[in-house]
């Protein structure tokens, strides 16, 4: 005699629900909200510099080369954790790293850069956070990889670590740089 559906269905249904919930718990981070801006042009903006740094930042700076935009603030504790990696990337010269100083006081920001190092090619002071909102920023730090046409190609939420830098961010940068070279050669 074959087993009737009512005999094995309850445990099967339970297993399906349990697996679905387990996947949700283990592999989905509710704090990571998918960006609506991937493949979209970076917002248009023109921000003044942070006191004591030479250049402000405008959207025009992001055109013509692959670049990284790192959203940071002196009041942001995880920013301190990731900052040495940006200092490293800045020193390597592989890709320009631009800073978006999010809702910070000028005084604290320049002191912070003096204390921890300034790897940024240019920094825009986003005093009221409007440019941050245009970028879809909802927590600091966040990092964007922007291609030569000014399109946002990658968003990383939270502090980067070496693994994320070397396996996610820099490979994306190199891929886009190779594309740019290929386009230029045509």
């Amino acid at each position: 005699m074959t087993m009737r559906p009512m005999t094995y269905m309850p445990p099967v249904m339970f297993a399906v629900v349990a697996v679905a919930l387990a996947l949700g718990l283990l592999f989905v981070n509710p704090k990571e909200i998918p960006s609506a801006l991937i493949g979209q042009p970076a917002p248009t903006f023109d921000l003044p510099s942070v006191d004591g740094t030479p250049h402000g930042l405008s959207s025009a700076d992001l055109m013509g080369q692959v670049s990284i935009v790192n959203v940071f603030a002196s009041w942001c504790v995880p920013c301190r954790i990731e900052h040495p990696l940006w200092v490293e990337v800045g020193a390597s010269g592989e890709v320009p790293v631009y800073g978006l100083n999010y809702k910070d006081s000028q005084e604290n920001a320049s002191q912070w850069l003096a204390d921890f190092g300034d790897p940024y090619t240019a920094i825009g002071a986003d005093l009221n956070g409007r440019v941050g909102v245009d970028f879809g920023v909802y927590g600091v730090p966040e990092t964007f990889v922007i291609d030569a046409e000014g399109l946002i190609q990658l968003k990383f939420i939270g502090p980067i670590d070496r693994f994320a830098l070397e396996n996610e961010i820099l490979p994306k940068v190199r891929e886009l740089q190779a594309l740019m070279v290929a386009d230029g050669a045509e």
């Binding site: 998918p34 609506a36 245009d134 909802y138």
Partner: peptide, 8 residues
């Protein structure tokens, strides 16, 4: 806001 942050 949806343009910037998605349906989320």
């Amino acid at each position: 806001l949806v343009n910037r942050y998605g349906d989320w």
